[in-house]
Amino acid sequence: MRRLYLETSPEETREIDKALLCDSELQRQYNEMAAIKKELDNVQMQPPDSVVKNILHYAQGLQEHS
């Protein structure tokens, strides 16, 4: 999991990658997880423009008064 989310140190990354190369079952599991992670990234929702505009207006309003 930490490798998938790039939380491993360079040393840990090398060790895990070595293990992945030597273990095809581990590699298959890793690829499955990576595929699902990619899908999760793809389902992000966009807030409506009106909401974005409201936030920007608020930020600009504060900027003018500061």
Partner: peptide, 28 residues
């Protein structure tokens, strides 16, 4: 629909490399 279960359940000897490995990148 978007999840290709056939691709990701291939035989273990056909499994693709992790993305970083297949690029020859050690993931740093």
């Amino acid at each position: 629909n978007a999840y290709d279960k056939n691709f990701y359940s291939t035989r273990s000897d056909e499994a693709p490399l992790p993305r970083d490995l297949s690029r020859g990148d050690e993931g740093n």
